[in-house]
Simulated scan of single mutants.
Amino acid sequence: MNALHQEWLALQSQHERYEALALGVKLVAFAATVLVPDNTLALALLALLWLQEAVLKTFQGRLGDRLLVVEAGLKSGGEVAAMQLHSDWLASRPRGAGLVAQYLKNALRPTVALPYPLLMILVVVI
């Protein structure tokens, strides 16, 4: 097995792990809605968990970007350097406001955002 195959397997495994972690964050958010008696604290916790999931999805997206590069290299048989996840990311890493914007963009993705406003409304209504 060549280095690109090994890299793909490792990246794909971690990509799926981030998906499971994001689901775990959603489950904790639901538990917070039910178990935290103070509405202000529950809303703050939900906002924090929402942002945490956005950070996880941003990290997952970086892995996904690299997976696409590796897959293109595997498909074409071309010259793609293996094991360059962090070097490639560092070369294009956004700074300051760009990084915050990346996190917020992921927070607003429907698959991330959907449960949080609903849970927040539930906290306020109940």
Rank of each mutant, 00 (worst) to 15 (best):
M1Q: 12
M1W: 14
A3Y: 02
L4D: 00
L4E: 00
H5Q: 13
H5W: 07
Q6F: 15
E7A: 06
A10N: 11
L11M: 14
L11A: 10
L11H: 03
L11I: 05
S13I: 04
H15P: 06
E16S: 13
E16F: 05
R17L: 15
Y18G: 05
E19D: 10
E19K: 00
A20N: 06
L21I: 13
A22P: 04
L23Y: 00
L23K: 15
V25P: 01
V25C: 07
V25T: 08
K26G: 13
L27T: 10
V28Y: 00
V28N: 00
V28M: 04
V28A: 10
V28L: 06
A29H: 15
F30G: 03
A32L: 10
T33I: 13
T33K: 11
T33N: 04
V36P: 06
P37Q: 08
P37L: 08
D38L: 11
D38F: 09
D38W: 08
T40Y: 03
T40N: 09
L41I: 09
L45T: 12
L45P: 09
L45R: 08
L48D: 11
L48V: 12
L49R: 01
L51Y: 02
E53D: 12
K57I: 10
K57E: 08
T58D: 14
T58N: 10
F59Q: 11
R66K: 12
R66S: 03
L67K: 00
L67V: 07
V69D: 04
V69S: 08
V70H: 01
E71G: 10
E71L: 12
A72I: 13
G73L: 02
G73A: 13
L74Y: 04
K75T: 01
S76V: 11
V80C: 05
V80D: 07
V80P: 00
V80W: 06
A81K: 07
A82E: 14
A82D: 11
A82I: 14
M83C: 04
Q84R: 15
L85E: 15
L85C: 06
S87E: 07
S87W: 10
S87H: 12
W89F: 12
W89I: 14
R93A: 08
R93N: 10
R93C: 14
P94E: 13
R95L: 08
G96P: 02
G96Q: 04
G98A: 12
G98D: 01
L99P: 01
V100C: 08
Y103H: 11
L104V: 12
K105R: 09
A107T: 02
A107V: 03
A107R: 02
L108G: 12
P110I: 03
P110D: 01
P110A: 11
P110Y: 05
T111W: 07
T111A: 14
V112W: 01
A113C: 11
L114V: 05
L118P: 03
L118R: 06
L119M: 13
L119Y: 01
M120H: 07
I121L: 13
I121P: 00
L122G: 03
L122F: 01
V124Y: 07
V125F: 13
I126E: 09
